[in-house]
Amino acid sequence: MEQNVIDASGLLAISTRLQRLSDQIRRDGLLIYKAFGIDFQPKWFPVLYTLYKKSTMSVVSLSDEIGYAHPSTISLLKELEKEKLIRSKKDKIDTRKRLVELTEKGKTLLSTMEPVWQVIIKATEEVTNTENNLMKAINEVEAALQEKSFLLRAQAYMNK
């Protein structure tokens, strides 16, 4: 079978290939939640799970914790507020800060999701626990990029 252009391009299309993999896992994740009768969008996971584990957080702290740009976090928060899964309030100490937390509806949703997470973990282990272990590789790449950005690495080759 002939490779498509993106697959054949190798490292040049790594971002596209990771996006494609992410999209596939999210689509299937949505179907897994639906199979359990849970109305949940996988894109909500980082915000809701973080608030589930850390309780009330400022928008900036939450954005930093999940590693999303501030505008992306704000967009998710608006969606989650509309769904009544989170609420926001002004910080009493610093009124410029907005704090977000789960609502009772959000807490209930997440508690019904906990058993599903075990299923998701098992299925994920099955596909990622390969000879090259994807999670280990992701951790290694993230650590390398923390040490020196992709841009700085590329610039070193542009100056040669």
Results as ranks from 00 to 15, higher is better:
Met1Phe: 01
Gln3Tyr: 14
Gln3Phe: 12
Ile6Asn: 00
Ile6Gln: 01
Ile6Gly: 03
Ser9Lys: 06
Leu11Ala: 13
Leu11Pro: 04
Leu11Glu: 13
Leu12Cys: 14
Ile14Gln: 15
Ser15Gly: 00
Thr16Arg: 03
Arg17Cys: 12
Gln19Ser: 13
Arg20Val: 03
Leu21Glu: 08
Ser22Val: 09
Asp23Tyr: 06
Ile25Val: 13
Arg26Met: 14
Arg26Tyr: 12
Ile32Met: 00
Ile32Ala: 00
Tyr33Glu: 08
Lys34Val: 10
Ala35Arg: 11
Ala35Phe: 08
Phe36Leu: 01
Ile38Thr: 02
Asp39Ile: 09
Gln41Trp: 09
Lys43Cys: 11
Phe45Asp: 13
Pro46Gly: 00
Leu48Arg: 07
Tyr49Val: 00
Leu51Asn: 05
Tyr52Glu: 14
Lys54Pro: 00
Ser55Cys: 11
Val60Gly: 05
Ser61Pro: 01
Ser63Phe: 10
Asp64Asn: 15
Glu65Ser: 15
Ile66Pro: 03
Gly67Ala: 00
His70Met: 14
His70Asn: 07
Ser72Cys: 05
Ser75Asn: 14
Lys78Pro: 08
Glu79Ser: 10
Leu80Phe: 03
Glu83Thr: 00
Glu83Trp: 04
Glu83Lys: 15
Glu83His: 12
Ile86Thr: 10
Arg87Tyr: 14
Arg87Ser: 13
Lys90Val: 03
Lys92Ser: 13
Asp94Glu: 07
Asp94Cys: 00
Asp94Gly: 01
Lys97Pro: 00
Lys97His: 04
Arg98Ser: 05
Val100Thr: 11
Thr103Leu: 09
Thr103Cys: 06
Thr103Val: 09
Glu104Cys: 04
Lys105Glu: 14
Gly106Arg: 07
Gly106Ile: 06
Lys107Trp: 11
Thr108Ala: 10
Thr112Asp: 14
Pro115Ala: 02
Val116Asn: 03
Val116Pro: 07
Val116Arg: 00
Trp117Gly: 11
Val119Cys: 05
Ile120Trp: 02
Thr124Lys: 07
Glu126Tyr: 10
Asn129Val: 02
Thr130Gly: 01
Asn133Leu: 03
Met135Pro: 00
Val141His: 11
Ala144Leu: 11
Ala144Asn: 05
Gln146Thr: 13
Lys148Tyr: 06
Ser149Pro: 03
Phe150Pro: 01
Leu151Pro: 02
Leu151Arg: 06
Leu152Pro: 01
Leu152Ala: 07
Arg153Lys: 08
Ala154Thr: 02
Ala156Lys: 15
Tyr157Trp: 15
Met158Cys: 12
Lys160Cys: 13
